[in-house]
Design a binder for these strands. Sequence first.
DNA 1: CGGCCCCGCGTTTTT
DNA 2: CGCGGGGCCG
Length: 775
Amino acid sequence: MEDILKRDLNPTQEKAVRNIQGPSLIIAGAGSGKTRVLTYRIAYMLSKGVSPSSILSLTFTNKAAKEMKNRIRSMLGKQSADIQMGTFHSIFAGILRKEALYLKYTRYFTIYDVTDSKSLIKKIITGMKLDIKQYPPKEIQGRISKAKNNLMTPEAYRNKPDLIDQDKKRQQGAFIDIYERYSKQCRRDNVMDFDDLLVNTNILFRQFPDVLAKYQAQFQYILVDEYQDTNYAQYLILKSLAAVHKNISVVGDDAQSIYAFRGARIENILNFKNDYPNYKVYKLEQNYRSTKNIVNAANSLISCNRDQIEKQIFSKNEDGIRIKVFQASTDTEEALYVADEIFVTQNETHKSLDEFTILYRTNAQSRQLEEALRKKNIKYKIYGGLSFYQRKEIKDLLAYFRLTVNPKDNEALKRIINYPSRKIGLKTIEKLEETAGKHEISIWELITRPTIIETGLNKPTINRIQQFAILMHSFQAKVDETEAFVLAGEILKTSGAHFDLLNDKSPEGISRFENVHELLNGIQDYTDEKKQENENAMIKLGDYLENVALLSTQDTMKDDNEPKVSLMTIHAAKGLEFDNVYIAGVEEDLFPGRMSTFSRFDLEEERRLFYVAMTRAREKLVITHAGSRYRFGSVQFNDPSRFIKDINPEFIEFEGGALPIVNDPFDAMFNDPPAPKAVEKPVRSKLRPKQSPAKTVMETRRLRPIEKQSVSPEVEDATDTAALAEGQTVKHARFGKGVILSLQKANNDTKAVVMFEQHGEKTLLLKFAKLKLID
DNA sequence: CGGCCCCGCGTTTTT
DNA sequence: CGCGGGGCCG
């Protein structure tokens, strides 16, 4: 083990791995080997005699957890199985099932996805006779989610007069009532939404100290990946679990925080020192993934952000080729260019198609790209978007499974009580729901009790409903004693769904039929996989359902052997890497999205997102943007993204013409002035307001072909950095005249401290600053 | 009750 | 443009 650490890790990584006692904060830049550090750290702990079951390791996807376990297993043998490793949501869902009774849930609770919870919220709003325009379900759902992320229960919310006041002012005075009803109904139906998994864990730990103590005692060592993307609820869970042993190690990179929109707090990283004053910090700054060119380009981009932890990410890899920037006239042309570029590159380099990815800001962009790839006969796969599990036929079958496991699951019941058709229509379902609501019971309870009479439905209808209940009952009786895939098959056949699908001979019908069988295969695969870890385990339908509910975008992609280009949003690409990366649609209003351009905070998150996109690439990075694009059914014209201009042009090769200059007054507002503590960032044309009197050096340069930009200095160009010395007077494009106070070598560049006449003392990187010597 | 048609709206991003 | 929801008719 000792040899392995020495051999495979750099000194900082090794220190981070060896320090297993006490709190530690590992700041890990993109491509700096953070997964390796985490993996080796756990392996090292095990080799030191730490018991696997006392380790809690939280990862961002379940796939990442699986891979880490496999790596540890291959390093050490079979010991990794007992490590609690997975996403926050899956680990704590597991704990909540074990302890469900404390919270008046049963261990069979259903996890609602966004669609289910939105549908319930909508039902509540209309049921309260509120205007759907005034209370858009989607917005209400977002607000509920936000409240939950901050652990604001309905009771707590109601006790905040300022919040209640605010709601009234925004014409949503009934928000709290909706929130309250929603919470009550979830509880009544034995249902939790995604946020509840974290909220209820917090409630469990807060209200039942002995339960908390049990887990504190168990999890003596806690590791957290992607710490920058944890929210308040997650932070508190960690804090309480780690309170006793304080062996908590968090790994994160503030520059890659891209989930603030769903409640993530970068501050969690910054506040770590407050909770654990005797913490140790390790900065992994060497990027092993990408070429120097890509790393430096990404650095120049991210330096435009004001909020960041100071660090110097560097690469010792080859310089590599420049980033290609291509301007297409339309989105169609852009897609064709990307497909063609991939085709040519693949032919030249003979790299596997697995080493190519196309990244975009929104899922909607995938269509054009798919078409272009199909035209070129290039195999591809798509992550996310409308996934397999979102298809109607799949959701129908899953609803059967859900209702089998949790009979109180109203949303599931409503979905399938009339599928296949049992002549139970919408009106009937409405009546059921209404009556159930009155009695504060679930629909299932209503229809399996004499209370069903109170619905006022006619005899034949009641009869049909009871037939359905008998059917479901036969499934429910087997839920704990039958293997998932056996029961699933039986449900498919006996429910009549199989017959219904078989009867549809249209192409779509056949595809639906195949999908359903695909789902059954998936259950089989899942079962096989689980049994590899534990031969004697019995995989029940409930286990499978939990797995499905908590799948992440990356988890849904099954390995197939044929190499394919992958298409995905940048969010979905988090943690992945490829030799060749294409970022498409890099345009104003799309990336950054229009909504993000109004505040510095949002804009900086978008820029971090772009940073994540760039740093996925090992060797080649291609950025494309289109002058016009179909959106909302009509043509929209977009300027190239400001992010392209944030990248130092020295690292870019513009293809197909120069980049037009865009002036956006917001740019200047949100990027100026730079952070005082950080190293001075390069000055760019975008810092100038629209009616800048004279074109700057940079602006003129940008219009010329790339070759002239960095090779031979011209009249207005920078003085060769080697010619500069202390004491000289220089001119800077933005800061004007100044005197060089000192020069200092840094990485592969020189830092200069310059005293400017107008702007005072500045520290500049000569590579970026383009100083001109004045005699 | 079920099927069909029309209208309105959406694009951030996801566990 | 494409989807989902709502309304209308058979």
